[in-house]
Write a protein that binds this DNA or RNA. Structure first.
Lengths: 107, 107
DNA sequence: TTATAATATTCCAAAATTGGAATATTATAA
DNA sequence: TTATAATATTCCAATTTTGGAATATTATAA
């Protein structure tokens, strides 16, 4: 009877769960900043190029907005598309829109 | 013509928006940690007392779990109820359950 | 080619978060 | 009262995050 193989399966399952919690936490971490949330909300009505976002949120530095977009993209929340000099960002996880509007009604 | 009063309204609106983004960020910050997410998920099937959560997640320190629950409560994600020596926690924001299950399918 | 517009990256000091260890609080039972 | 079980709090060094300032990259137009 190979008991150790069962142990192997259990510890593999445990590792998968733990890395899943870590991945989820990364998504929430990307959302845990007011500027990044404002940048994200800027994209609720569809794809925009970085320059458009910068001019809408003119109170923040260009570098700050660029870094915010990249962090949201790395977490899988946004996707991007290059076209000449411009980079267009859009939402890759539509369920975030519903969740944030739910939060707003619960606040 | 009282232009300044319009400015007043605009700046008030801006402040409300900014504090809302901060509040939202606080909620996401509370969710941005693997242990807190695991504690939260422990409550998906309903209210539990702290001791129950501790014995389910026995790999973490009691103090760690207690701090996790308090942080989630302060963000408005959990609520609690005392009964004798026990404290029962439950989810105060049901839409989080749907969102997390959506995340899991998108990962 | 060179200038320029759009975007990304690096550097970094200040601020915030992390989780372990020890200790405190509180309610109940003996 | 006192012991104990359940939960919360404090302390703290290590790690991570923050955002401003300067600089780099890249694609296009002149």
């Amino acid at each position: 009877m190979k008991v150790y193989s069962s142990y192997g399966i259990l510890s593999t399952m445990k590792n998968i769960c733990e890395t899943n919690f870590k991945k989820e936490a990364e998504i929430f971490k990307a959302l845990s900043n007011p500027v990044r949330l404002e940048v994200l909300e800027c994209l609720f009505d569809g794809e925009k190029c970085v320059c458009e976002i910068i001019s809408k949120l003119n109170k923040y530095e260009q570098a700050h907005i660029s870094k915010s977009l990249i962090k949201l993209k790395q977490a899988g929340i946004l996707k991007d598309r290059k076209e000449g000099l411009n980079v267009y960002y859009s939402i890759a996880m539509p369920c975030i829109i519903h969740f944030i509007s739910c939060l707003k009604t619960n606040m």
